[in-house]
Computed example of a mutant assay.
Amino acid sequence: MSDLHALLGGTFDPIHFGHLRPVMALAQQTGLTRVTLLPNNVPPHRPQPEASATQRVDMLRCAIEQQPLFEIDTRELQRDTPSWTVATLEALRAECGEQQPLGFIIGQDSLLTLAKWHRWQDLLSLCHLLVCQRPGYPTEMETPAMQQWLDQHITHDLRQLHQQPAGCIWLADTPLYTISATEIRQRLHQNLSCDALLPAAVIAYINRVGLYRD
Rank of each mutant, 00 (worst) to 15 (best):
M1K: 07
M1W: 06
S2K: 15
L4R: 01
L4F: 01
H5Q: 13
H5N: 07
H5E: 12
L7M: 10
G9R: 13
G10W: 09
G10Y: 10
D13K: 00
F17P: 06
R21Y: 09
R21G: 01
P22I: 00
V23N: 02
V23E: 02
M24D: 11
M24H: 07
A25Q: 09
Q29P: 06
T30M: 10
G31M: 00
L32K: 01
V35E: 08
T36D: 06
T36S: 14
L37F: 08
P39H: 07
N40P: 06
N41H: 15
P44S: 12
H45N: 13
R46C: 12
R46E: 13
E50A: 15
E50W: 09
A51E: 03
T54I: 10
Q55S: 05
R56Y: 02
R61C: 11
R61A: 14
C62S: 14
A63I: 07
I64G: 12
L69M: 05
L69R: 04
I72P: 11
I72S: 06
D73H: 08
T74D: 11
T74W: 06
L77H: 03
S83Y: 06
T88D: 00
G97V: 04
Q99S: 12
Q99V: 11
P101M: 12
G103M: 02
I105C: 00
I105L: 00
D109E: 06
S110M: 15
A115S: 14
W117N: 08
H118R: 13
H118Q: 12
L123F: 10
C127A: 14
H128Y: 04
V131C: 04
R134G: 06
R134Q: 10
R134M: 08
G136D: 02
G136Y: 04
E140G: 10
T143M: 04
M146I: 03
L150R: 01
H153M: 03
T155K: 00
T155G: 01
H156I: 10
Q160W: 03
L161Y: 02
H162W: 00
Q163V: 01
G167L: 08
P175S: 02
P175W: 00
P175A: 00
L176T: 11
T178Y: 09
S180A: 11
A181P: 02
R185C: 09
Q186I: 05
Q186M: 07
Q190F: 11
S193I: 10
D195R: 14
A196W: 09
A196Q: 13
L198M: 13
P199Q: 12
V202P: 03
I203R: 15
A204D: 15
R213L: 12
